[in-house]
Each structure stands twice: as C-alpha cells, then as structure tokens.
C-alpha cells in the first residue's frame, strides 16, 4: 500500500527542457564555486605537496647550501630511527591514556551535570574554564605545580606527611603527569559535548524504553549509549587527532624527558625541524605523522559514515 502510494508522487522522466536547464544550472554552480574551490585546494594541498617535496631533500637551514635532492633517504633513516619509533609509541600511549580517561570522566560528568540540580548551570560554566586557557599556559602552570622544588602539589604532599614525588622526572610518572594535565584541560570539553548530546536525546524514547520494560542498565546500554554513538565518535576524532598533534604540554613540562619517556612525536618533530634544524628529516616525519593522523581519523569517520548509510 505504501509502495503504490509513492508511485503517485514519483516524477517520472524529466522533460528535455528541464534537463537542459539543470545542466546549465550545474555549470553556473561550478563557475561560481570555482574560485573558492581553487583557493581552498591550493591552501590545503600546497603545504602537503611542499612537505612531500622537502621530505625528499637534504635541507639544513643552518647551512648556506640550497636543499639537495636525497630521494627517500630521509624515510629510510626514519625506519631505523629508534627515537622515532619510541616517539610514535609514546604518542600512542599518551593518546590512549589521555583520551581514554577524558572520555570516561567526561561521560560520567555529563550525566552528573544532566541532573536538574540547582547551581548545575553555573558549575557547568565554571568547569569549562580549563579548556579556554592556552595549552602553553596550562603546561607552564602545571610545570610549576608539579615542580619538585617549588611545586604546590609536592608542597601539599609534604605538608601532609608524604615524601616528594618526582612527578616530571620519573618515567611512567612523568607521562602520567602530562596525561593528568591534558585530562584536566580537556575533560570539560568532552563533558560539554556529551552533555549537549544528552540534552538532545528525545524524552519519548526513554518513555518507550520504560514501557518496554528495560531496566536502568538496559536503558543505558541499549538506548543511551547507541544514541550517543555519533557524539562519542566525534569527540574521539577531535580529541585523538588533537592529542596526537599536541606538543605544548611536553614542551613546557618535560621536553620529552626523562630519557625520552614523554617524547611524543610532535616534540621530536619540533626539535628536529626547529632546533637542529634538519628540515628534510622533519618533513619526512611530518608526512608520516600526517599519514597517521589521516588513518586514525578515517577509522572513526568510517564508523560514523557506515552508520549514516545504513540508516
């Protein structure tokens, strides 16, 4: 019955006139879009192509000689570079830890803030503050907070009777300190996105769920969680890519120490490209990092899209 009804409304073949019109309209559309398209393409593509170009050269900024073609030697060298491998590993560790904790905490907090208690709105605004501060400043502040000689964290700890904790100078602890700082800064953002998503969930679905006899946990796992999936994926993409690119905290807090335990990929890239400054090698690193970011984000985007399509 449904099908027969839609037949009434189907438009059938377009008439020749309207087809001509459509072609013309499409042509005009392209013409109008073209300048912006070219500019965008240039702006987006040129730096990437240029990075690829540099990555195939030996180019030391400190030397007067012009760049010298070096083929894939930079990449070859990267392949054997233990420091590079370490930095990729540290980056992944950092992303998994920081983003994982941010997601869980932010998710939980969103539910807390979703309760209609007095003062929640104000509290919500306050919790947003950390994400408004520049990461560099956050890094600086926490560097001093965690500092073993002057840091307020250690000061309190010692006052409470503990012994000084080497927050930034002991391998695993240093990474955790940076993770904690990142969590401090970004959990509110994650929370806010989830909060907005929660607010947007239709009330009627929950009524249906209760009528259908779903228990609290069933409602969470069968209704809330799947409905939040797009929000979860989007936050994951934003945070994971952002965490992979971020170097400010490492820069301000540990410079990759101790012994490279917190040397994330962007920091190694930064020291190579800006301190050494071996541009070719840094560019090769940047290209690989771009590939990593792209793969990572595509994984998530595909998840999102797969859902949209079958929907």
């Amino acid at each position: 019955m449904e099908a027969s009804r839609t037949d009434y409304f189907s438009l059938g073949e377009p008439k020749p006139d309207s087809m001509k019109l459509a072609v013309e309209r499409r042509r005009a559309t392209w013409l109008l879009i073209a300048p912006a398209f070219v500019v965008l393409l240039g702006l987006n593509l040129f730096p990437i192509v240029y990075a690829l170009y540099i990555s195939c050269h030996y180019w030391m900024l400190a030397r007067p000689q012009p760049p010298r073609f070096a083929g894939l030697s930079n990449y070859q060298e990267l392949f054997f570079d233990a420091r590079f491998r370490n930095s990729v590993l540290v980056s992944l560790k950092f992303i998994v830890l920081a983003v994982g904790i941010e997601m869980l905490l932010g998710f939980g907090l969103a539910f807390v803030f979703n309760t209609r208690l007095r003062g929640m709105a104000t509290l919500r605004k306050l919790t947003l503050l950390p994400s408004l501060v520049m990461p560099l400043v956050v890094g600086l502040v926490w560097f001093y907070m965690f500092n073993e000689n002057f840091g307020i964290v250690n000061w309190f700890w010692v006052v409470l009777g503990g012994t000084r904790v080497p927050f930034l100078t002991q391998g695993a602890l240093a990474l955790l300190s940076i993770v904690a700082t990142d969590v401090w800064q970004w959990t509110p953002f994650v929370m806010l996105v989830f909060f907005a998503a929660l607010q947007a969930l239709p009330e009627y679905v929950y009524e249906a769920a209760r009528i259908d006899g779903l228990s609290g946990s069933q409602i969470f796992f069968r209704v809330t969680l799947p409905l939040l999936r797009p929000a979860i994926l989007i936050v994951l993409i934003i945070r994971a890519v952002d965490a992979l690119r971020s170097l400010e905290l490492v820069f301000m807090m540990t410079k990759g120490g101790p012994a490279g335990d917190t040397e994330v990929l962007p920091w190694y890239l930064y020291t190579t490209g800006f301190m050494s400054p071996d541009l070719g090698y840094a560019a090769a690193m940047a290209v690989l990092m771009l590939a990593l970011v792209t793969i990572l984000s595509q994984l998530f985007v595909r998840q999102l899209e797969s859902r949209e399509v079958t929907r």
């Binding site: 500092n147 073993e148 000689n149 002057f150 250690n154 000084r164 080497p166 930034l168 100078t169 807090m253 540990t254 410079k255 120490g257 101790p258």
Partner: peptide, 20 residues
C-alpha cells in the same frame, strides 16, 4: 636537588638562590 632531570638555567639558579 629533587627534580634534577627537569632542571634548567632558570630553576638551578632559583634553587641555589633559595638555599636549596
């Protein structure tokens, strides 16, 4: 001093200045 593995120009002088 504590935190030596993260100590640089600024902090070493400050620790010294404060008698550390």
């Amino acid at each position: 001093p504590p935190g030596i593995l993260n100590m640089a120009w600024d902090e070493r002088v400050r620790v010294f200045a404060q008698g550390g």
